[in-house]
Design a binder for these strands. Structure first.
Lengths: 182, 182
DNA sequence: TATTGTTATACTCTATAACTATA
DNA sequence: TATAGTTATAGAGTATAACAATA
């Protein structure tokens, strides 16, 4: 087991607002820059909404994934979160140190761990989910009728950008921890 | 002048695609998570579109800002990009090392630098702008009619999230390098 | 021979704090 | 006293490479 997990989440960026009087040139026309501004604002707002619980959006996502897929391997967590294996290790270490998750032997593969939430982890996640849901609802409400359309458009955008980057999507069979290889 | 600027941009994250068979729970319902997935995809696609030029989205933004606002101070660059002063320093160092920007004395304040692009920087930016514009256009085209609505919605979302985080926007006068204090 | 998790290490990005020069 | 830039340092996140155990 590793010993290098970190203990404190930290807001990495300040507010990214248009500065009056500055000329942003092409940036103001780019979808990509609008996306960056929105994500920056949401990121800061996430920390405000979950203040005191010391959880980053990424760590929240990991908690949800382990909760909904008990017994999942670290490697699968890495794949789901777009991380290298070593990144999933650090993340798992951190969750374990918080007392929120634990590694158990995977009966089907002695090399692997099965990840599970502890009772403490489940309680924390319940609190977090409530805060994050409320936070998201507030945003949607602020957007009005276009909120749900925005979410669908974002999903489509992710798909379009991925297709552009990878003309042929990888045909690798995606295996979960519960389904045997084909 | 500092000596610690880095030389290589690096793609920090792998692909963040939904893994079939995994249960994402609340994540699939959250606007914030959809936004994260979209930004991840666009980030990777940006690197593909500008391959070989070794520029991150952030560095591209800095180039544009300095080009459109010649003589701007480092502190203003930091403010525009949501960075700490020390971050703007590193960024400026990097641009300078590439030979794309230079620091000149600011005639109005001996403490400050005025930032300017070099001829090399302007040529590089011209190339980059072309690639980035084409990249963005391709995304918009992939989105069809909803593309422009998406951009507007993202701008609104950034505003809503910022308003939520800061009920009272800071009344600090935003000064550029060309306008005297009120 | 390939995969899983681990260890060690390095690099990037960001921040804080203390410092210098100037306002 | 406050501001602009710098320096030094630290923390978090990510990656690569080599390794042991297992498949």
């Amino acid at each position: 087991m590793s010993k290098t997990a970190s203990s404190q989440a930290q807001v990495p960026e300040g507010l990214l607002l248009p500065v009056p009087g500055l000329d942003y040139g092409v940036l103001d026309e780019l979808l990509g820059y609008a996306l960056r501004r929105a994500q920056n604002a949401l990121y800061l707002d996430f920390y405000r909404a979950t203040e005191g619980l010391d959880v980053s959006p990424q760590r929240f996502a990991a908690l949800v994934l382990v909760a909904r897929n008990p017994g999942m391997r670290q490697g699968l967590l890495a794949q789901a979160m777009g991380l290298h294996r070593s990144g999933a290790l650090r993340l798992t270490d951190w969750l374990t140190e918080q007392g929120w998750a634990e590694r158990r032997d995977d009966p089907s593969d002695a090399r692997s761990w099965g990840l599970h939430l502890t009772a403490h982890g489940r309680r924390t996640l319940a609190k977090l989910e409530q805060l994050v849901r409320a936070h998201d609802q507030a945003l949607l409400q602020g957007l009005g009728e276009r909120g749900s359309a925005l979410k669908a458009d974002l999903e489509r955008l992710a798909w379009v950008a991925t297709a552009a980057a990878q003309p042929i999507p990888p045909a690798k069979p995606t295996k979960t921890d519960r389904r045997p290889k084909p």
